[in-house]
């Protein structure tokens, strides 16, 4: 088969057909800083450094996506929140901005154009698009309106709200939904090919299916309808088997697959309707040997890639800073070694 461009490869797989080889998504964010020889904080404040590094990493590893994601708490900064940066790991969100329920009552959707960190992402997306055009898909990432409150008000306060005060919950969702929609559509306008709707709270690792149906599902379904462009749901290593039917119903075209769940079962449930993205264990990656890289890549491809509808990726949505260049290169090499269609029977 003639070699495809990254865009052709990904689009073919999304149509549940077999491209030339399994598409590879390396969720590299902080590694761009390493490559550019700057701190993570400096890197995430420069659209130029980010765009350059994403293109360089795509060429170096021959992967199939660019990714304009910086860090989750950038979206909380829009609401007045702060971010704590580290030298060797992802930034953390600072003190919650919602300290009391009354704070929700006065909350308004922020204007994305006034948020410096988000405009860095928008501009980086634009530069990536200018660099690769239609050759490579660019992913834009937004935190779901439903999961954002974990950082806005703290995990415990949010659980308490979710189980005891639906009125304030709905008010918060209204504000977050407007904000998220505005940001997602700006990313698409800037050149993002697809939006990753990052919604770990909806995973059944975090809330049971019944609660998801009452809350996160309706919010996701509404968001998908109103967002421009194709949308992928990401649950950050969380389990999804009990809600796969609803993820399809909500209108997502793809979904993250966790290492906690059997890829073969997920593939069956996805039924040619959802592309699976996963499920390499990012936490273990820093210590993988060459044999383990080979084995894990081969196993994921064997379990998930037949017939297309599969993108090889880590299962958390961000490869840890501690994962070495050799390991990333090893994953990329193994994906080409074992991912050539038609797949060999194993």
């Amino acid at each position: 088969m003639k070699a495809m461009s990254s865009m052709e490869r990904v689009l073919t797989s999304l149509q549940h057909k077999e491209p030339d080889r399994v598409p590879l998504l390396l969720s590299l964010t902080m590694h761009g800083a390493k490559m550019q020889g700057v701190s993570i904080q400096k890197y995430f404040s420069s659209p130029q450094l980010m765009a350059e590094a994403q293109v360089r990493m795509w060429k170096k590893y021959e992967s199939d996506f660019l990714n304009s994601f910086t860090y989750s708490s950038a979206e909380v900064e829009a609401f007045g929140g702060s971010t704590i940066f580290y030298e060797d790991g992802p930034p953390n969100s600072g003190e919650p901005v919602i300290q009391a329920l009354e704070d929700i009552e006065s909350l308004e959707p922020p204007d994305v154009q006034t948020v410096k960190s988000l405009m860095v992402t928008i501009e980086a997306t634009r530069r990536m698009k200018a660099a690769v055009g239609e050759e490579v898909p660019i992913l834009g990432v937004t935190i779901s309106p439903f999961s954002l409150p974990v950082m806005q008000m703290g995990f415990e306060n949010y659980f308490d709200l979710l189980y005891s005060d639906m009125e304030h919950f709905r008010s918060l969702m209204k504000v977050n939904t407007e904000f998220q929609l505005q940001y997602a559509n700006m990313l698409v306008e800037a050149g993002a090919t697809a939006i990753v709707y990052f919604d770990p709270l909806s995973s059944t690792t975090i809330i049971p299916r019944a609660k998801f149906l009452e809350t996160g599902f309706n919010i996701a379904r509404d968001a998908v309808k109103r967002m421009h462009g194709p949308i992928v749901a990401h649950f950050a290593s969380g389990r999804i088997l009990p809600i796969v039917d609803k993820i399809i119903e909500a209108g997502f075209i793809g979904v993250s697959a966790s290492v906690d769940e059997d890829l073969k079962i997920l593939k069956k449930l996805a039924g040619g309707k959802l592309t699976l993205i996963g499920n390499l264990n990012g936490m273990e990656m820093p210590n993988w040997t060459a044999e383990q890289i080979d084995q894990n890549v081969r196993s994921a491809i064997s379990d998930g890639a037949r017939g297309g509808g599969f993108v090889l990726c880590d299962n958390h949505g961000e490869i840890p800073y501690q994962v070495s260049d050799e390991t990333i290169q090893g994953i990329a090499d193994a994906s080409r070694k074992y991912g050539k269609y038609p797949l060999k029977r194993t």
Binding site: F159, Y163, T204, T205, I206, P208, K211
Partner: peptide
Amino acid sequence: NGDVALSQVYL
């Protein structure tokens, strides 16, 4: 075992 969710453990 993945049979209950974190929210249930917390509450």
